[in-house]
Design a protein around this nucleic acid. Structure first.
Lengths: 158, 158
DNA sequence: TATTTCAACGCAAAAATTGTGCGCTCTTGT
DNA sequence: ACAAGAGCGCACAATTTTTGCGTTGAAATA
């Protein structure tokens, strides 16, 4: 279903996005057309969800990266649903997951600066329904930013 | 330096990656060539760092998403540097940041399953130098995955 | 072991997209 | 009012993507 060549392709595509099929083909030892068909198959098969431009947050004025851990007053189905749909409605909330452990939810938000985070805090965070406690942690420095999944260890079947 | 049209372009490109300039141009009210030049300028200006294929972690066998908070035994320059370069050397560590607050570092790792996380734990996490304490939190459910920065509120200068 | 089958490949041509030169227009500054 | 410069659309050239088709090699079948 996925062989060594596909893995190489995924690795290349994950790092440097769309490149001419001829170039990729050369790197993985395939003709341009064969390579092209492989890529289409990976897309159609749902391995590759799509392509995106990677923006540099600082260059668009979002210099502050904050994790916010939140626990709710109630764990009822309704409480969770209400909270989650509120979360989804704010673009400033970049990510949100339900975690094992003490705090229930963790979300990541982007802000221009501390003052902007304060605005965000009042404008959206404080409006999330059912919040019992909230704790923020600022990113002081990014040691390693997400640049793709390790693709070397995929199940091969060929 | 960046106007309303660029913002629209960034938004489009961030969501749906490279699309024909003619199509983007139509959406933002520009000819294909003008649109094309705008995009090149955004790339050259460092606003767009590049393009990447977005892989679906489950489809490549990485079903487990874990946050690991780590505090070090020493805060010395050397200790931090040693820790950080070790972190960078492991592909399984997807992200790492230095945080304000109690725990020093937070990293995010991807594993196939719990058994694989155990392997990871022994194979790389436990080999990170200078670790005093480590605490893991598993993602039970992703409410919102990262899909780009909010681009609406960029400083416009036109 | 010979034969059939089928997926995947490479080549080549067609279709689409990107990349570029150029003249025009509108805004800004003097 | 006028010169200068940024940004636009058009037209065309250069690349890249996409598809048709015949071939090849491995696995299944007889």
């Amino acid at each position: 279903m996925i062989d060594r060549i596909d893995i190489k392709l995924l690795d290349l595509l994950q790092r440097h996005g769309p490149r001419p099929a001829a170039e990729l083909g050369e790197k993985v030892g395939l003709s341009a057309s064969a390579c092209h068909r492989r890529i289409r198959a990976l897309e159609a098969g749902g391995i590759i969800a799509g392509y995106t431009a990677r923006l540099v947050p600082e260059r668009i004025g979002l210099g502050l990266d904050v994790f916010v851990d939140i626990s709710l007053t109630s764990q009822s189905e309704e409480a969770l649903t209400a909270f989650e749909s509120a979360v989804k409605s704010y673009d400033e909330i970049l990510e949100c997951q339900l975690l094992s452990g003490a705090s229930d939810y963790r979300l990541r938000v982007a802000a221009r600066n501390v003052a902007d985070f304060d605005r965000l805090h009042r404008h959206c965070l404080s409006r999330l329904p059912g919040v019992a406690a909230m704790h923020s942690a600022f990113t002081l420095r990014t040691i390693k930013a997400f640049e793709g999944y390790p693709v070397s260890g995929i199940d091969e079947r060929r």
